[in-house]
């Protein structure tokens, strides 16, 4: 926590954040309006919003598909990542055997797996969910494993003198202590899950916002491409925001990792 965020009131902070976003949209508008930019290179914000209501495209079903892939892949990554980290902290042997393997597997560029995943699972929501999962699971696993290991040895001594059980150590000290780490992994994973789902849709899909972008690219409907990017971003922002809210509820201010 910096001194700056401490001394600044919440209201002006939020106001400034909103203003900077509005300023970007305004700059975009002015650039297109007075910059003599061809419409197929960059549409104005007004045209971009118009395309959402023009009825030319079915936005909502595609948002739903991409949203399902992102949230689904993310949720599976969260469950699998935390559980694997748990197993590794409980068994030194399993960790010694499988952690290096997972690190090696993590080196595979997940994008390179795309064509394979399509061969194995065909087109559709599931393979793209799998892409989102495969790219989001590692940061969660690594930060959780790290967080579960971070226990003060003296604190363990204190628990030992009172004959505390392993379960008590886990539930009262390790897990709550690891929460800030889990959340820092969850934040990184939120961004990656979005990228994973979209890459999946680029590589092979018959619905979703990424698929739509490829379709309208052919007709040079840049308005729609911009709108698709904005909608994808909004899904990501919603996910990220949900994680932040959850963190605010579960993690004491002093322990948050930004």
């Amino acid at each position: 926590m910096t001194a700056k965020t401490q001394t600044m009131d919440l209201l002006p902070r939020y106001a400034l954040a909103v203003l900077s976003h509005l300023a970007l949209v305004l700059a975009w508008y002015l650039f297109v309006r007075f910059g003599d930019v061809p419409k197929f290179v960059m549409p104005s914000p007004v045209d971009t919003v118009k395309v959402l209501f023009s009825g030319t495209y079915e936005w909502w079903p595609n948002v739903l598909v991409t949203g399902t892939e992102i949230i689904g892949g993310y949720a599976i990554a969260l469950v699998v990542g935390v559980l694997l980290a748990l197993v590794f902290t409980w068994s030194k042997w399993l960790e010694a055997a499988f952690m290096p393997l997972l690190v090696s597997l993590n080196m595979i560029p997940k994008v390179a797996l795309g064509p394979l995943i399509i061969v194995w699972f065909k087109y559709g929501v599931f393979p793209n969910t799998l892409m989102a999962f495969s790219i989001a699971v590692f940061p969660i696993l690594l930060t959780t494993a790290r967080g579960l290991r971070e226990v003060e040895p003296d604190l363990l001594d204190l628990v030992k003198t009172l004959r505390g059980s392993r379960w008590q150590i886990f539930i009262k000290i390790q897990l709550p202590g690891a929460l800030p780490y889990i959340f820092s992994g969850m934040k990184v994973a939120a961004i990656l899950a979005v990228a994973g789902a979209i890459v999946g849709e680029f590589l092979g899909s018959d619905k979703g916002l990424g698929y739509m972008m490829l379709q309208v690219q052919v007709t040079l409907d840049t308005d729609a491409m911009f709108m698709a990017v904005i909608l994808i971003t909004l899904i990501g922002v919603l996910l990220y925001g949900a994680v932040l809210v959850l963190e605010r509820l579960l993690v004491v201010k002093d322990a948050r990792i930004d």
């Binding site: 003296d154 709550p176 202590g177 929460l179 993690v251 004491v252």
Partner: peptide
Amino acid sequence: FQQPLLLRW
């Protein structure tokens, strides 16, 4: 101990 080691949550 030398450090208070309070649980910060």
